[in-house]
């Protein structure tokens, strides 16, 4: 009976529980689902937020190079419609499109800029790697560098395809030409820098020479009467190697203006003594 009572009890309880049993079943299912959704949802939001922030950070990283102006010029030219842009100038003579020669020139300029960038990247890579290993610079800088490297590589490929589109096989030589242009440019810059000093050097030398000459004249006047001999002697003592110098110079390029040169040299000696 125990069983019975139990069962009755059970049924009785069961009688009451059946409405509760499905409830607890759904309730039991609800909890884990809730748990799972909250867990997955929070994980998802975290990861998406984290990724977004990373992307934002990467985007915020300053590009290694300033904007590529030559590339912009070239692409602007490609998209330029001269018949539209120049109709204000004169009506009868319109270009149907930008001449190829200009585009080629612009492309070559773009290649030159790329070469300059490549040179810069190559020269800084080694140093940057060392600094990174030592921990002197942050990872951010390295990320920026890698991005610049990748971009430049793509840019080079792009230029080569464009060049091949203009003339077969130009892509193989365009960067050679660009490199020479870059070298020649550096050459000219250095020459101009040095030549720019010419005027100031000339002026300096003129004034110095004038100074030496006037000093010499003054000294001559002073020397004439009272202290002719001692000064002369002093000059000889100290000036033995200077005399050698005079000999060497006179043998050299100074034949053209003998008198002037000798005067100058004497004046130098005068200054020394």
């Amino acid at each position: 009976m125990d069983n019975g009572t139990n069962s009755t009890n059970g049924t009785f309880e069961g009688f009451q529980t059946p409405p509760a049993a499905p409830k607890s079943f759904w309730f039991g299912l609800l909890l884990p689902t809730l748990y799972l959704t909250i867990l997955i949802g929070s994980l998802y939001t975290f990861s998406s937020l984290y990724r977004k922030r990373l992307l934002q950070k990467a985007e915020k990283l300053e590009p290694w190079f300033p904007p590529h102006k030559q590339r912009d010029i070239y692409l602007s030219l490609l998209h330029l419609d001269p018949s539209e842009a120049s109709d204000s100038a004169d009506g009868e003579k319109k270009l149907s499109k930008v001449p190829d020669s200009i585009l080629k020139a612009a492309l070559l300029k773009r290649a030159v800029e790329d070469i300059q960038r490549i040179v810069q990247l190559r020269s800084s890579k080694q140093a940057l790697q060392t600094l990174l290993q030592r921990g002197s610079v942050g990872d951010e800088l390295w990320q920026r560098f890698l991005r610049a490297e990748k971009e430049t590589e793509e840019e080079v490929k792009d230029v080569v395809t464009e060049a091949n589109a203009f003339a077969p096989n130009w892509g193989q030589t365009i960067f050679q030409s660009a490199n020479e242009i870059n070298q020649n440019f550096i050459l000219k810059q250095r020459t101009a820098e040095i030549q720019a000093k010419l005027e100031s050097e000339k002026a300096w030398w003129e004034s110095k020479r004038a100074g030496i000459q006037s000093d010499f004249m003054k000294e001559l006047e002073e020397e004439d009467k009272p202290v002719g001999k001692p000064v002369e002697a002093g000059k000889k003592k100290s000036g033995s190697n200077d005399d050698d110098a005079v000999l060497v110079d006179a043998g050299g390029p100074a034949q053209a203006q003998g008198a002037n040169g000798v005067k100058k040299r004497k004046s130098k000696k005068g200054l020394g003594a």
């Binding site: 992307l55 990467a58 985007e59 590009p63 904007p67 590339r71 912009d72 010029i73 692409l75 602007s76 030219l77 998209h79 330029l80 001269p82 842009a85 120049s86 100038a89 004169d90 003579k93 319109k94 270009l95 930008v98 001449p99 020669s101 200009i102 971009e151 793509e154 840019e155 792009d158």
Partner: peptide, 22 residues
């Protein structure tokens, strides 16, 4: 973000007679 696919359009004009840019 992808700089390789965009560019800045610059205000350029071309002289039809001399073909010089400005």
């Amino acid at each position: 973000m992808d700089a390789s696919e965009t560019f800045t359009l610059l205000p350029l004009t071309i002289d039809p007679a001399t073909k010089a840019l400005a």
